[in-house]
Amino acid sequence: MTPDEAASVLGVTKRVLMDSYRRWGIPYLKVGKHVRFRTRDLHSWVDSRVQQQ
């Protein structure tokens, strides 16, 4: 998915996503010069960051 779509899934702006995806450790793919995200990778990443209480 595109950065716009991934930002929407994560509930952040595209700018925040693009400024932070490497720092946050969000899995991404490079397709030529474009950054792309897989839906299952985003969901797995979010699930791994949920704090259990």
Rank of each mutant, 00 (worst) to 15 (best):
R40Q: 11
P3M: 11
M18Y: 04
T13V: 03
P3V: 07
R49A: 08
R15W: 08
D4Y: 11
R38A: 07
S20W: 06
Y21D: 00
G32N: 10
A6V: 02
Q53K: 12
V46P: 03
R40W: 01
V35C: 06
S20D: 13
L42D: 05
V12D: 02
V46Q: 03
K33G: 12
Y21G: 00
T2C: 05
R22E: 13
M1W: 07
R23P: 00
A6G: 02
L10I: 02
E5D: 04
G32M: 03
L10V: 04
R23M: 07
R23I: 04
S44M: 08
R22C: 06
H43E: 09
G25K: 10
S48C: 03
D41V: 01
G11E: 05
L17S: 05
V50F: 13
Q52S: 13
R23D: 13
G11L: 10
R49N: 09
V16A: 14
V35T: 14
Y21Q: 01
G11S: 05
T2Q: 12
V50R: 15
V50D: 00
M1R: 10
D4P: 00
L17M: 07
R15L: 07
D47S: 15
G25A: 11
V9K: 14
H43N: 08
K33Q: 04
V12Q: 06
A7K: 06
R36V: 08
K33T: 01
V12N: 05
R15D: 11
K33C: 00
L29R: 14
T2K: 14
V9M: 14
K33R: 15
S48K: 13
K14P: 01
M18P: 01
M18S: 01
E5F: 03
L17P: 03
T39S: 08
R38G: 01
H34L: 09
G11W: 05
A6P: 04
K30Q: 06
D4V: 10
R49V: 07
P3K: 09
R49G: 05
G32C: 04
T2A: 11
S44V: 03
E5V: 13
V9N: 06
T39F: 10
L29H: 10
H43Y: 14
Q51L: 15
F37E: 09
G32W: 05
